[in-house]
Design a binder for these strands. Structure first.
Lengths: 161, 161
DNA sequence: TATTGTTATACTCTATAACTATA
DNA sequence: TATAGTTATAGAGTATAACAATA
């Protein structure tokens, strides 16, 4: 966490740097912006003992009960082996269940426990507050355009809203 | 590299997922979009034997000759210890020089060598091409708004664009 | 005392190969 | 054969503490 409490005061040294050439490098600005968002998100989730990956997994399981680990890994854009340890952690903490699927005994049906859903509710509320604060400087129209643009980059297509 | 060659075909499994709740979670979409951009950038830089961090460092040194490692670390938003190994690598490859500053013999003045500047030129041209392709689905006005928004998140302020 | 660069270290995230059990 | 989940492992990126040299 480089920015302790989302201080709005940037490092003065960084601003003396001439980044004119980089002004068109989306990757650079995206990384820096993402760093800020991620740091905020990490700090927000810490009280709930969740990280970005465990939070995202929990949200997707609550919203999509019964999905498999393969589906979840695809949705999260991570490799299956990396998801296993996340599921191990959430299961150990009794936030999710791994139930065998009768029709395909290779797969697990993932569902959230009551404790998982409660943690989801609290964490999601906290995240909403923090993200709202994080984006407070951006007007609604721009915010919508940005999310749409991010989504279009994400899926590699043009329009989608 | 999860998306081998920036295929515009998303994983079908991921699209069946209900991410309505996440539609407002900027962190989630930002991470996914950043993953795509980063994968493209990594692939683009690979022929030059550069990673995102080494490329960014090289660009900033070329654009800001004489800056110190502390200043560079601040500009890149990484910790000083992590920058050391990057400088070791670039110096070993004779892309940059570390010269002692006469007025402050603790610090190094970082400059790019001729080879460093040449690599910078070639890599930057390649990055520009790839980013243009990556953002081809987004109109100019939106693109400008997105970069401005990213920058405003980055510096934690409102307007600056 | 404070700062620059450094070493050592640890943790998280990511990626691949290879295995098992099912299909 | 192919797929779901798993294990082991390796590589990046990131973060902190502690040190020597210098200010």
């Amino acid at each position: 966490m480089k920015r302790p409490e989302l201080s709005p005061v940037p490092d003065p040294a960084a601003d003396q740097i001439n980044d004119a050439t980089l002004r068109l490098s989306v990757g650079y600005h995206m990384k820096r912006a993402f760093n800020v968002v991620q740091a905020d998100l990490v700090a927000t989730l810490k009280p709930f003992d969740l990280r970005m990956l465990t939070y995202t997994a929990l949200v997707l399981i609550v919203d999509n009960p019964g999905l498999s680990q393969s589906q979840l890994a695809a949705a999260m854009d991570i490799e299956r082996p990396n998801l296993v340890v996340l599921m191990d952690e959430l299961e150990r903490r009794a936030l999710i269940n791994r139930d065998r699927v009768p029709t395909d005994r290779r797969a697990y049906a993932l569902t959230a426990t009551l404790a998982g859903r409660r943690l989801y509710e609290k964490a999601t509320a906290a995240v909403a507050v923090h993200e709202k604060r994080l984006l407070s400087g951006i007007d609604e129209a721009t915010r919508t355009a940005v999310i749409a643009a991010l989504h279009s980059i994400e899926i590699g297509q043009t329009g989608e809203g």
